[in-house]
Each structure stands twice: as C-alpha cells, then as structure tokens.
Amino acid sequence: MSFLLGEHMTGGYGAADILHDCSIGVEKGEIAVIVGPNGAGKSTAMKAVFGMLPLRKGRIVFDGSDVTALKPEERVVKGMGFVPQTHNVFTSMTVEENLEMGAFIRTDSISDSISQVYDLFPILKEKRKQPAGELSGGQRQQVAVGRALMTHPKVLMLDEPTAGVSPIVMDELFDRIIEIARLDVAILMVEQNAKQALEIADKGYVLVQGRNRFTDTGEALLANPEVRKAFLGG
C-alpha cells in the first residue's frame, strides 16, 4: 500500500466520467509524475486525489487512513499540500504574507518554516516585501510552492509547476523539487514537459483518456520504445 494512493478512481464533473478506473500512488521521499497527451485527465486525476472531483468509484488512502470523504481543506490539515496550476498565489499580498497564509492552519511559530522556504528559494527572501503579483512567472511558482510547504505537508501535489516558465527556470524548479523530496516529502506532479519530468521521477504514470496506460519507473518509461514514440516525440 502506497503512502498516498488513489485507487480505481472513476468520476467526472458532470454526467460523463473523465477518469476510468485510474490508480495513482506515491511513496514518501519519492517523486511520482503523471504525464500524457492533452485531455488525458492528468490534472483531473490529481484533483481527484486531492478531493476536488466527485468520485463515483474508488477511494483515496493517505498515510494509512481512508480520506475519500474529506474535503480538500480537511486534507490540507491531514498533511496534503496542493499547488494549483494557475491562480496559485495571492497576487495583492506580499511574498511573506503569502507564506504566512500558507501556514494559516498552524498555531505554532512559523518563522523557522519561513526561513526554510527562504533557504530553498533565496530569491524570495530578497523579494519578501513585494506583492506576489509583481513577480516573474518562475518566481511566482516558487512562492506557490513555498506557500504549500508552509504546513510541512507529508505529500506535495504540483499541477504543472513549470507551465509557462523558461527551460532554465524549469531545470531550477526541478532541482528544488528533488531537494524537497529529499526531506522525505512525497511528491506527486502533473507535467507537460514529459521527458524532463520523467528524468527526475521515481515513478511515472502515463494516462490516456482517463485510464492508466503505462506505469513504471521514470527510467523504464523513458527507455520504453512505445512510450517514447507515442508520448515523448521519439
């Protein structure tokens, strides 16, 4: 049983199902990546794991307990962190206030966590008094990840963290994500840049039309000729 596991997930927003018997799991300290063509239900699968999609079938197990019935905000309290793809920072608030809001559920002192985030993303320390809306795309993503880290989540879920950033910034973000995983955090992310993402992944899920198509280690998926041909451009 994985640390976080979405099992046999079936469901959608309306009458039609988007996910069909889809299963996704991740272990502590591991990076799991969901890849696949556009409209494969990658983000939907992740939202389902986080409780943002009503499921008709299947269940979500996290840290040994069934969380299927919990609302997203209740899962945050349990130790799940989520970084949405867009609108993932409070644009009118400063970087530091963003981090403070990330730690809203905590009642203990948060200054250690803030300096931890600043260690991870030094640029944020420089810009801590600036409204997050004034930052560049890559810096905003750092604020978004930093905000989610403030609760010390046991699992961090990232929905396309590198969407719209330059290749250099992308590499840097991936490096940071590896660092976070080393802190024994389970990382589940959806990525458009499949090749680069699978390179850092311990586990990869290739989804097609809401179904599991291939599941293997990142390395094995990269080496699989079928996957290469269909999803990685040769």
Binding site: E73, V76, F82, N88, F90, M101, R147
Partner: peptide
C-alpha cells in the same frame, strides 16, 4: 483568491 484561501485552510 477564494480557492487558494480555502486550500490554505
């Protein structure tokens, strides 16, 4: 940002 506020607890 209502949704993000919700996610932040």
């Amino acid at each position: 940002n209502e949704n993000l506020a919700l996610l932040s607890g």
